[in-house]
Amino acid sequence: MGIHSSKDKVCSLSKAVSRIEDGSIIAVGGNLSAREPMAIIREMIRQGKCNMHSIGGAHGVDIDLLCAGGVLRRVQNSYVGFEADFGLAPNYRRMVQQKKVIPKDTDCVAVLMQLRASVYGLPFMPMKLVTGTNILDLHPEYIVMTCPYTGEKLSLLPAVKPDWAIIHAHKSDPKGNIKLHPPYFADLLAIEASQNSIVSVEEIVSEEEMDKIGATVPYYEVTAVVELPFGAHPTSCYPDYTYDRKHLAEYVKLANRGEDVFRKEYLEKYVFGVKSHDEYLELVGGHDALEELTKWNQGTEKWCELLGRNL
């Protein structure tokens, strides 16, 4: 995990992201349309990061956008898509088919075991036998051994130690203690397994306040914290706000119209066209539109309206 003993972790977005080296293995937090570190991802694209390798479970717009922005070379995720709602991930799909991104499709359980090996400080983890699936063709590094105790066949998966975990969370204190509300997805594992972690948070609070609410992640596992309210937009960050389904619909629509359209009408506008996260928030509707996403807890009817509004 790396031990980060400094008690001053607060950092600007651009400085935090500048520390991530090209070619890094990254573990992106959140999943599907939930609590993905989208502001950090947009900054990685603006800074022209490239040749990276992601490892993780079921994801969506985060990995798709990292592909479109030229950041990822290898995608070792178990799922990249927009589910039944919006279908395939258009940029990921296109770049894989054009051989610009190498698919290293994996499985949620394999990700768990490989990160766990890193957490345990072990070179590999054994697992009940997995065979008969072509996922193994993409992973010659998974091997089978006979258990010296029981004689049964086991699959071995080598440790993966990400260089960076990239996470969006609810609160931190200046030291880097993190408060994360459930669902945790695999974020705690990703932070623990990684050498470094950047965590963007909705709010940086005082140490006294953090003492009161209790931290979920110890500060020494965290390299840098960046205060970015609505930093997960357009994904959700419950209980603070739900996801912006309308924005995602627009995203997928533009991405489905091809590389050029997506570059011109999405990347140039929402990523390269803004100088700061605040400018981005203005562009996606500003205070009123974002405030609306926080109203999911006003009752079932309002929640359904936010998630199901006509697109």
Binding site: A58, Y79, Q97, I135
Partner: peptide, 26 residues
Amino acid sequence: NTLIGTLDNIKIKLPGGAGSSHIGCF
């Protein structure tokens, strides 16, 4: 749920199997 075509010539990249590859074994 992984791809249409072959590994060397992917015609359609599907989203992936999430946990189904391994949980399908267990």
